[in-house]
Amino acid sequence: MLVQVPQTPAEPAVPSITAEEAAAGARAIVNLFEHWQLGDEAACDLLGGISRSTWTRWKSGSIAKVDRDLATRISLLLGIHKGLRYLFSDRELGYAWIKQPNMVFGGSSPLDVMKGGSIFALERIRRYLDAERGGW
């Protein structure tokens, strides 16, 4: 006998992140990029081309509205960080991995892949790390 499975709503219960969540994510990204030793240009690229003035404000602790694209990028970048923390017991090796050439990415570093600007490039690195740690 067939039993109908209850439908899952297509829209999330909370359609957007709160200002507090956005600020917390932005602060975490500022700290992460400091550990990754990224320059301002690379930081702005990874965040989807935000302006340098916005990035400077973030670094000083002033966070404005975060749109859906930026929130997704923050989520992916923090997921990459989490994956590296699982894979490397030595934090510094995890931070350095981002800039190391990797044959999986055709000899490019994960940072070079991510700086391509596409949100899919961030997702590619995130999925690779998830697969490496057996996250599927």
Rank of each mutant, 00 (worst) to 15 (best):
A19K: 11
K65I: 10
R57D: 08
I119R: 03
T54F: 12
W36L: 13
A22P: 07
G134H: 11
S53D: 04
G83S: 09
T72F: 10
G61F: 04
M1I: 13
A131K: 07
S60R: 15
I29T: 09
V14L: 11
T18F: 11
P6R: 10
V14A: 11
V14F: 10
G39K: 07
R127Q: 09
A26C: 14
R73C: 04
M103R: 02
E92I: 13
S89N: 06
V5K: 06
M114K: 09
L46T: 09
T54K: 15
F33A: 13
L129E: 01
E41N: 05
H35L: 08
N102S: 02
L78W: 00
K99M: 12
E92A: 13
I98V: 15
L38C: 01
A96V: 10
S89L: 06
L77H: 04
V30N: 03
V104F: 00
N102C: 02
R85Y: 00
A96N: 10
K115V: 08
T18I: 11
G134L: 12
A19L: 09
M1G: 15
V30M: 04
R124E: 05
V14P: 03
A42N: 07
R27N: 13
V30R: 03
S109H: 00
G48R: 05
P6D: 07
E34I: 03
D112Y: 03
A64R: 13
S16D: 15
G83V: 06
S60M: 15
A28M: 13
E20Y: 06
R133V: 08
F120T: 12
A13R: 12
R124D: 01
E41H: 05
R85I: 05
H81E: 14
I74K: 02
E34D: 11
E132C: 12
R68S: 15
A42M: 04
L77I: 13
S75V: 00
G94Y: 01
E11V: 11
L77W: 05
I63N: 09
L84H: 03
W58H: 15
S108K: 13
L78I: 03
P6A: 10
Q37E: 15
Y86E: 05
L129M: 00
A28Y: 10
Q4S: 12
L111R: 04
G49Y: 14
M1N: 13
R73K: 06
K115Q: 10
C44N: 07
Y128A: 07
P6K: 10
A10C: 02
G48E: 07
A19G: 03
R127K: 09
E92D: 14
T18N: 11
T18C: 10
R85F: 01
I63T: 13
R133G: 05
G61R: 03
K82A: 15
G117N: 13
V113E: 02
A26F: 05
I80M: 12
P6I: 07
A96P: 02
S51Y: 12
G48I: 05
S53V: 03
R127G: 01
P9S: 14
D130G: 09
V14D: 07
